[in-house]
Computed example of a mutant assay.
Amino acid sequence: MRHQLSFPCDGVPLAATLDDAPGATGLLIVSGGNEIRSGAHRGMATLAQRIAEAGHPVFRFDRRGIGDSEGENGGYTSSAPDIAAALAAFRHAAPHLARVIAFGNCDAASALLLHQPLALDGLILANPWTYESDDTGESSDPALPPAAAIRARYLARLADPKSLLRLLKGEIDVKKLARGLSALRRKPAAAAPDSLPARLNFALATLPCPATILLATGDRTAQAFIENCQPGAVPVERLDSTSHSFAGDDGEWLVERVLGLLTRPQ
């Protein structure tokens, strides 16, 4: 059964939704960007319903200044109190819980990494955000795709017989092609010690709880993560998709992965 409720965070009320279920392992969904708790195209609401139908309680919330919640929106970098308060509210609303695993997509995944330690039993991190925030503290989509995406597209064209035929016909600029091939061999520059990728790498290497990374390999944000971060011992599961929010049929893949991680033996 779905319940609407509220809980306090630094003196302001935040709105939340609980999909109740009898299971002892629950899912805390943290929304990315400025999305409300229902998610893009109600994707998080659908995910919550599916997970609850499988027997696991699910808690979603709007952080301060987003959706139905009051307060000032400070972006994902200042969301640690929101996540901690939501976790406490989840445990209060579902006192039978023994374990809570958090799921976040995009900068919500990055927030779950950056704000550790949190009293969580596991993390599911989808397409973590690695771009630096703008002056307001909010993430902004870069104008150009990451270098990894450019290289992947270049290699795909080289493997295309039509492109090879154009090369033989002299329709492709050989000098430009040579410059592109040279760029494919270049290694990306190391991240600055205080950069977001470096901080995420440190968080991944020092996690106090188990985690799994989910990547839609055709998504620009996921491609940037692949290029900029080193998961280390954290397992990575990949889906051949361009959907950042796992829309359409990709939602089934996401549900299967989340359920598998919720039911995995400790």
Results as ranks from 00 to 15, higher is better:
S195P: 02
I213M: 12
G33K: 09
V12A: 03
G33R: 11
D20A: 13
G23I: 11
Q266H: 13
P193F: 04
R257L: 03
W129Y: 15
S6F: 03
D68I: 04
L113F: 05
F7D: 08
V174A: 15
A183E: 00
L27I: 04
L177N: 09
A119W: 07
V58H: 07
D82L: 05
Q116L: 08
D134C: 14
A93L: 12
E53S: 15
Q4P: 10
A148M: 09
D10H: 06
P210M: 08
L200K: 05
L125C: 12
R60M: 02
L47C: 12
Y76E: 04
G170D: 07
L167M: 14
L155K: 15
F246C: 00
L196E: 00
F103W: 05
P210D: 06
G26Y: 14
A148H: 11
P117Q: 14
S69C: 01
A148T: 02
V30C: 15
L18W: 08
L261K: 02
I124T: 05
H56E: 12
P197M: 02
Y76D: 03
P95W: 04
R50H: 15
L18N: 09
R2A: 10
D62V: 02
T25I: 12
D250P: 01
G71D: 03
D68M: 04
P22G: 01
D219S: 06
L214R: 05
S133A: 15
R157T: 14
E171P: 04
I29R: 03
H56Y: 13
C106V: 13
L207M: 05
T217E: 13
A54Y: 13
S110Y: 01
Q223H: 07
N228C: 00
I83S: 05
P193K: 02
V234R: 00
T17D: 08
A189W: 07
D134M: 13
I29H: 04
A216G: 03
I150Y: 14
F246H: 02
D10A: 11
R64P: 03
A189V: 13
P81I: 11
H41Q: 05
A45N: 10
R60N: 02
R63N: 03
